[in-house]
Amino acid sequence: MTNSFRVSKANHLRRRLADHAASALAVAATIIVVAPLVAIFVYLLYKGASSLNLDFFTKIPKGPGETGGGMANAIWGSAILLGIGSLLGVPIGIAAGIFLAEYGRGSKLANIVRFTADVLNGVPSIVMGISVYSLIVLPQKHFSAFAGGVALGIMMIPTITRTTEEMLLMVPHAIREAALGLGVPNWRSVLSITLRTASPGVITGCMLAFARVAGETAPLLFTALGNQFWSSSLNEPIAALPLQIYTYAISPYDDWHRLAWAGALVLILLIMVSVSLVRYVTTRGVLKGAN
């Protein structure tokens, strides 16, 4: 009797030790994960903020080795590329999401589309770059902002499609039935009742997709190519913020490294602001007016 009691006490001690060890490891893992994030941000703020000045936003790059200059053309170029990407990606993405949620529920076609959207989401960005290169750049025989925008737009589609679908599925059936019962045409009920109800969630998806492609470099390497000068033409190579950061980061010049840090800070702030906005909107309720 006493013997078995002792054994169970030793056992109890061992189990408690294991419990504490596991807790400690989990806490340690969390700290190790948060550490690089903090390190990246602190270093980025420190390096980037000390290099940011008005020139960065107003001047175009200087030649190799010269100090000064800015990334005005790259910021403008990124805006143009993201504009083209959004014009292409947002309508197609939302429409495909509407199809999946409203028309194709459970059908074979919907499953195929859903699967290809997942495949498209997993395509490495560099592969997207060479695909768009051979689809658009090779036939046109020149690099162009248009090709870069198309590459970004294609990359936005799967994220938008899947979030739109998920959000539309959350809209209660009663709302659709109420609209149809009042004699509203189906297309109108989808657009101004269902989609409208789910709009905060759908916008979230669009912002997430936007934030994701805003930092993409690989698909632009062989499509937009980059440009040292100011350009707004869709038919010419155009500069982009991530491309410029890449070129400057692997260059041997100290002043270009400084500009790369400043560019990274601007890029991150752009992305963080949109992601935080998304977070703010989503925590305030995904559905407008439902319930």
């Binding site: 994960v33 948060v34 690089p36 994030l37 390190a39 990246i40 270093y43 980025l44 960005s125 934030a211 994701r212 805003a214 930092g215 993409e216 470099t217 690989a218 991530p242 950061i245 890449y246 980061a249 692997i250 790369a260 840090w261 990274a264 890029l267 991150i268 992305i271 963080m272 992601v275």
Partner: peptide, 18 residues
């Protein structure tokens, strides 16, 4: 915070790594 790690662009990771 862990999701923020996903939002940082690849090229910024590379810059920090270098």
């Amino acid at each position: 915070l862990t999701e923020l790690l996903a939002a940082i662009p690849s090229v910024v990771y590379g810059l920090w790594a270098i």
